[in-house]
Simulated assay, not measured.
Amino acid sequence: MTEDEPAIEKRKRGARKPAPRFSREQADVRRAMLIEAAARCLSRGGIGAFTINSICREAGVSRGLINHHFDSLDALLVEVYKSSLYASVNAHIAEARQRRAMNADWPPQQALVALVRSNFSPVYFSRANLLLWLSLWGEIAVNPRLQAAHSELYNAYRAELAEDIAAVARSRGRNVDAPALARNFIALVDGLWLEWCLDASVVTPEDAEAAGFEMLEAQVGALR
Rank of each mutant, 00 (worst) to 15 (best):
W137M: 12
I165E: 03
E160R: 05
L132K: 12
G138M: 10
R145I: 09
E160N: 06
A166V: 04
R170H: 13
P144M: 05
L132V: 13
Y157N: 10
L153R: 15
N143Y: 01
E139S: 08
L161K: 08
L132D: 06
V142G: 00
V142C: 04
A162F: 03
S151R: 15
R158E: 10
A167Q: 04
V142Q: 10
L131Y: 08
L161C: 06
S135G: 13
A148W: 01
A167T: 04
Y154Q: 05
G138F: 13
I140A: 02
A166W: 02
L146P: 01
L134I: 10
A149Q: 09
A148E: 14
D164I: 06
A141Y: 04
A148S: 11
G138N: 14
D164E: 15
Q147I: 00
E139Q: 13
A167E: 03
A149K: 06
E160M: 08
R145H: 12
P144D: 08
L153K: 13
A167M: 03
Y154R: 08
L131V: 00
L131C: 10
W133P: 00
E152R: 15
E152T: 11
N155W: 06
A169Q: 05
L132S: 07
I140S: 01
E139D: 13
L146S: 01
L146T: 00
A148F: 00
E152M: 11
I165L: 09
A167S: 11
V168Y: 03
G138D: 14
A156Q: 11
A169K: 06
D164F: 05
Y154D: 05
A159D: 15
L132E: 10
G138S: 12
E163M: 02
L136R: 09
L136V: 07
L146I: 00
L146E: 02
S135F: 07
A149M: 04
Q147N: 13
A141I: 07
E160Q: 11
W137S: 13
A166P: 03
I165H: 01
A169S: 09
S151M: 12
A156H: 07
L161A: 08
R170V: 11
L161T: 09
E152F: 04
I140M: 10
A148K: 11
Y154C: 01
A148V: 03
L132P: 02
A169Y: 07
V168W: 02
A141M: 12
L161S: 07
W133N: 14
Y154H: 10
